[in-house]
Design a protein around this nucleic acid. Structure first.
Lengths: 224, 224
DNA sequence: GAACCTATTGTTAGAGA
DNA sequence: GTCTCTAACAATAGGTT
């Protein structure tokens, strides 16, 4: 039903007016809440084509009071601690890009992990991988192997107390570093695999897994 | 986990500061969205104890521009179309009271209806009712009876085409007028009944009901 | 239009690192 | 204190009347 709004001028004048009225309400409410909850002085002025005079909050006197504080500052002072629209937008974009890169990284890591488990099941064809993929896959294999080896040692020494076993698979957020364009489509094209690894990997790994049933690789692919 | 915040000063200074920072972010985002989506000029100034200089949006120049529009108006003009904090709060309270009264009314109507169906099943004791309850119950009975009579006539004339039957029960939002304090607890105390009327009321009513199975009185009690 | 409704998206309180 | 997470709550886009 409801679409995710795109942050740009609403073309339809009727819808624009409607949105304006709704959001103005919401905005004033938010200002009121901020002032009430946090004991700060704030004001808002909205100069719209829908009314001849600007709409202000919390009152004419209130606006003038807050504004006079503002006007008292020198221009240099004013510029400090100030958010301007361009800066605000740039900052927002930067934040979103950062978030996007993080997701790309997590996705790539999940994919490499999926692929690794696929290989352990003999389902994968490594020949299609490019150099970087192979490198990342190899290093993940090595990391995984060392953890598995550790677990074997621990379990061999004292069969019962499986309390302090290192986790079998690491969090996708951290391990391998990469930051190029690994999206889901590409994943499915290049690797042509299913996200379905519920079966134990090998008899050996399955045995190791009894302590914390964690070998199956979940589909961790994330989107914004 | 999360409590519904009460709109009053946050006592804990740490929490207050934290909330301030979060909500300031949110507020500036909202201002940006309003301006972008609706093509209006707006500014916000926040003068907090956390920063020596006021925080403004969209920019010093932007604020001055919008403010100059505001200052141009005569004081009389300014007062027009203006929301001040007290007015805003009063308006909010009025709206909430209106909503509350509406809910009271709906609840009372639902209760009278429940009671009526209870009576039809012979489960209720009418002696505990006060004058107003009896009056409302009587008028609802009469309304219901007239609808039932209509339905009997329609069904007697042409047994098949049950298309344009009037609805058996009216919407709780409209019918009886009353606006005093009928809440759920009182309902249960005074009337001592269950909200459970799934069984057909009488053989006759049950027969009439086949067309649209609507005789059972749902529990419509609402809260804010 | 304005007023209401509700599925959906957006904001944020509280907890944890 | 700052950053992150997420369930819970609030705002609201797009309908309907």
């Amino acid at each position: 039903m409801r679409k995710k709004v795109k942050l740009s001028l609403i073309e339809n004048a009727t819808a624009r007016r409607k949105t304006f009225l709704k959001r103005k309400e919401g905005l004033l409410k938010k200002v009121n809440e901020l002032v009430t909850l946090c004991d700060v002085k704030a004001c808002a002025v909205i100069y719209s084509p829908y009314q001849s005079t600007p709409e202000v909050w919390p009152s004419r006197e209130g606006v003038e009071e807050v504004m006079s504080k503002f006007m008292e500052c020198s221009v240099g002072e004013r510029t400090k601690n100030m958010v301007d629209q361009e800066g605000f937008v740039c900052q927002s974009i930067a934040q979103e890009n950062e978030q996007l890169n993080k997701l790309h990284e997590e996705n790539r890591n999940s994919q490499i992990q999926d692929f690794m488990f696929g290989c352990l099941e003999g389902k994968m064809d490594v020949r299609h991988l490019d150099g970087r993929d192979k490198g990342d896959l190899r290093s993940l294999f090595e990391k995984y192997l060392s953890v598995v080896t550790q677990r074997i040692e621990i379990l061999t020494k004292n069969g019962e107390s499986s309390s302090s076993l290192p986790p079998l698979i690491a969090d996708a957020a951290a391990p391998i570093d990469l930051n190029q364009n690994p999206n889901v489509e590409e994943h499915e094209d290049i690797l042509s695999m299913e996200n379905n690894h519920q079966e134990p990997v090998t008899a050996r790994l399955a045995a190791l897994t009894i302590a914390d049933a964690d070998v199956s690789a979940p589909n961790n692919t994330k989107t914004l």
